[in-house]
Structure formats: C-alpha cells, structure tokens
C-alpha cells in the first residue's frame, strides 16, 4: 500500500430517474496523501456531495456506484466495497455534515450520540467511552464537557453543534475525515472558527481531510490540494498555491475571476460571470462538459476522450486548450 489515505480511480455514480439515467459522477479520480487536506470544489449539482457520500458508502440503494480503484485508509475496497466500508465507517473514515442542526438526533443526549459508535466498535465500557467523549469535546472547544454529556442537542448553538459533530467524527480516531460543506450553514464568524479548528485538528492528529465546499475562500484558508469538479468530473487538480496563481482550466479561471478582491475590484462594477448554464447530466455525454460555456472551445472539444495534461507531479488538467490557458 502507498502512503495515500484515499485513492480512487474512475468513480461513477448513476441515479435512475424518470427521464433516464442521471450520470451525476462520471469518472472521478481523487487521491489524498496522509496528513493532506484536499478541497473538492464546484458549484451546486456538480456531484461533489455525491462523491463524498459514495466514499462513505451511504448512498441510497438505487444509486449505482462503480470504481476501477477504491483504496481508503490503507485498505483495498475495490471489490466487496459495501461490506468492507461497513466495517470502516466511524473508525477509519468519518464524516461531518453540512447542517449540524439536523445531523444530531434531537431525542438522544449528546453523550449517547458521541459514544454509541465506539462502544460498539471498540467494545469500550460506558466509562471509557465517556472519558473519550469528554476528551474530544474538550479538544473541539466545548467548555465544561463532562456536564454537557447529559444534555440534548437543542441546548447548543449552531457553532457548538458543529463542534460536537466534529468531536463525534473524531471518536473512532479516524485516519480520513470527510467534511461535506461543514461551514455552509454557519455564521461567517463561526465559519472561520470551525475552519481553524479543522485545520488545527488535522495538523495535531495527522488526519487526512477531504473538504467539500463551493467557497474558494474556504479553500484558500485550509487546503493543501484542490480538485475542481465540473459536471461530474474533476476538471483540474493542483496544489492550492498553483491553482490560485496559475489556473489551467478555463472553468477554474472563470471561477477565480468571479471572486471580488477588496481594493482591486472597482466598486459597483459587475463581477465577471461564467456565461451559460451547467449541462444536464441525463444520458451519455461526449467531449468536454464545459465547452458550451468556454470562450476557447473549438471543434475538437466535442471529441472523446478529453486529454489530460500533467504539467507537474500531483497536478492535472483535463482540457484540449490547456496549453493556451497556461500561456
């Protein structure tokens, strides 16, 4: 096995709908090294949450998931994925969700919700499990943790609940943490605190972190690596500095151009936007999914397969025109 905490190749998720098969994830490659933070960015509906949910094996039964390679936390899950994932969930890999208000069960105490996973998986006694819960709550910055174990979620604020969710995810001492837009439902000031906390925990515990977001500010704050997802595929993947400095995919360029820069973007001026709309993903698609919105698109862009350039190790871009963009 490699030092990679996650290595997937050609992950596909297909969902049957009344109008045909929705190919929501169309061959995603992702890898995360030990201790690395990979941000998966993209707009709503690009398949980033489905990708994360598929990695946890938590998609509904009707979703069809396939991958050519599926390795996680040092184990090969390519075959018998579901059965193996069932044993790894909450232990080797854990997940936190977008909305901490709905991710905690309102009828159970937070102590119960924190401890129930490890008490089963590691055969811990109530005392041992409580001790670990107190340690984790303390770690995520919940004051007076011992007393709060017996309280219910409605006694906590949104930011505290997300801290509790993080503590809950850490209970099984996972190697890989998947965070699906963990700050989207929070106030801006709380967002910064939660991001700082995730970064801190990631460094302290040597966690590998897969963070899903549509917020490039979040990416700049926490990522070491970035994968930009568009219409079910990774358009570009690069170390965070390279991506912000020299994006090589026209879509990434468009995204970065749409961020206002305080002091530089003139007041009252319209921000540049990417024209057109995201293509529908029902049925099969050939060529580059971005070509209808791309200023550089040419005849070759409707051909399969879209070439993948790798200008440096750990970096790739899927585009016929990558050379023009980089120039």
């Amino acid at each position: 096995m490699t030092d990679k905490m996650l290595d997937i190749r050609n992950l596909k998720v297909a969902l049957p709908t009344e109008r045909g098969t929705l190919n929501a994830v169309r061959g995603v490659d992702l890898s995360i090294a030990k201790g690395e933070t990979l941000c998966l960015v993209g707009e709503s509906g690009c398949g980033k949450s489905l990708t994360a949910t598929a990695l946890m094996g938590l998609l509904p039964r009707y979703a069809k998931v396939t991958a050519d390679r599926f390795e996680m936390a040092g184990q090969d899950l390519t075959a018998k994925t579901d059965a193996k994932l069932a044993k790894m969930r909450g232990r080797d890999v854990a997940m936190i969700f977008q909305d901490p208000t709905s991710a905690l069960n309102p009828t159970l105490t937070i102590g119960r919700q924190l401890t129930e996973g490890v008490m089963r998986a590691e055969k811990l006694s109530r005392k041992e499990a409580d001790a670990r819960a107190i340690e984790m709550l303390d770690r995520v910055g919940i004051a007076n943790p011992a007393a709060r174990l017996t309280q219910y979620p409605h006694g906590f604020s949104g930011g505290q609940r997300q801290r509790i969710m993080i503590a809950s995810a850490l209970m099984g001492r996972p190697k890989l943490l998947i965070a699906d837009e963990p700050t989207t439902a929070l106030d801006v000031t709380i967002q910064a605190q939660i991001l700082a906390l995730l970064g801190e925990l990631q460094a302290d515990l040597g966690l590998s972190l897969l963070l899903i977001t549509h917020d490039l500010g979040v990416v700049a704050a926490i990522a070491t690596e970035v994968a930009v997802m568009y219409a079910g595929r990774i358009a570009e993947r690069a170390p965070v500095k390279d991506l912000f400095r020299a994006p090589q995919h026209p879509y990434t360029q468009g995204l970065l151009a749409a961020i206002p820069v305080p002091g530089l973007t003139p007041r009252g001026s319209a921000l540049p936007a990417i024209p057109g709309r995201v293509p529908g993903l029902i049925g099969t698609m050939t060529g580059c999914a971005f070509r209808d919105r791309c200023a550089l698109a040419g005849a070759e862009c409707s051909q399969d397969p879209v070439p993948r350039h790798s200008p440096a190790p750990g970096r790739f871009v899927e585009c016929y025109k990558a050379a023009e963009v980089a120039a």
Partner: peptide
C-alpha cells in the same frame, strides 16, 4: 441527516432504525 450521521458512525442498520429512526 441524523440517520445518515448514525450510519456514518458505523452503527449497524438495526440500531440505526431502533435507536435513531423509530424513536
């Protein structure tokens, strides 16, 4: 989400149903 979170903790389905969902 809390049922999804319960599954993500690695709880077996019968516990997810009886402890988290049914209640």
């Amino acid at each position: 989400d809390y049922v999804r979170a319960a599954k993500a903790k690695g709880l077996p389905m019968h516990l997810v149903i009886s402890r988290h969902a049914l209640r």
